[in-house]
Simulated assay, not measured.
Amino acid sequence: MSPKADGKHIGFWGANALSLAFGAGFFLVVAAQAVAGYAEFNEQLAVEGLQRIGFGDYLMSSDFAVDVTENWQSEFLQFFLFIFATVHLLQHGSPESKPLDRAGIESEEYQRMGDHAREDSPRWAGTKDWRQTLYSRSLGLTMAALFLLSWLAQSVAGVAAYNDVRLRQLQEPLDWVTYLGSADFWNRSLQNWQSELLAVATMAILSVYLRQRGSPESKPVGSPHTATGVEG
Rank of each mutant, 00 (worst) to 15 (best):
S138Q: 13
G7F: 12
A144P: 00
F12P: 08
Q132N: 02
H92Y: 11
D67P: 02
G114F: 13
A227S: 15
E109S: 13
S218I: 07
F76N: 08
L174W: 05
W193G: 04
G158F: 11
P95W: 10
S215D: 06
L139T: 14
S97H: 09
V159M: 05
E40D: 12
L139N: 06
E96D: 09
E43T: 01
G49I: 03
S182A: 02
E119M: 05
W193T: 04
Q154Y: 10
Q191R: 13
G11Y: 06
R52A: 09
P95V: 10
F185Y: 12
A24P: 00
F27P: 03
F82R: 04
S2R: 12
I10A: 09
I105M: 10
D67C: 02
T133N: 10
G181N: 04
M60C: 04
F76I: 03
L139G: 07
L134D: 01
R166D: 03
N42P: 09
P3T: 09
L148S: 15
F12N: 09
L148C: 07
F27A: 03
V87Q: 06
L139H: 05
K128T: 12
I105T: 11
A153S: 15
A227H: 15
W151Y: 01
A103Q: 11
T133L: 10
S218C: 06
F76G: 12
G93E: 06
S138R: 09
G93K: 07
A227R: 08
E96H: 14
L50P: 14
R52H: 08
F147W: 15
F185A: 06
N187T: 00
E106F: 12
V30A: 05
V87W: 11
L141G: 13
L28I: 02
G14L: 10
L174T: 02
E106A: 14
T142W: 13
V159Y: 04
P224Q: 01
H9I: 13
F22R: 08
S155T: 08
D67Y: 00
F55C: 10
V208G: 06
I53E: 15
S2Y: 07
F84K: 05
L210W: 05
A17Q: 08
Q33S: 10
R166S: 07
A5Y: 14
H225Q: 15
E119R: 07
E119I: 03
G93Y: 14
T226W: 13
K98D: 08
G14M: 12
P95C: 09
D120R: 12
V35G: 02
E109W: 13
N192M: 14
V35H: 01
L197N: 02
F147V: 08
R137F: 11
K4A: 13
S2E: 03
K128V: 10
R112L: 15
D184E: 04
A199R: 10
Y209M: 09
H225T: 15
H225E: 15
A199D: 11
G181R: 04
T69Q: 12
V200A: 13
W124C: 01
G126V: 09
D6E: 14
D115F: 01
Q212D: 04
I105H: 11
S94Y: 13
F41H: 08
M60H: 04
M60A: 09
W124L: 04
L28K: 09
G11V: 04
R131Q: 01
L149H: 03
A157G: 02
K4Y: 11
V159S: 08
S223Y: 13
K128H: 10
A157N: 01
M113N: 04
E43F: 03
R52F: 05
G140Q: 03
G25D: 03
Q78Y: 01
M113D: 02
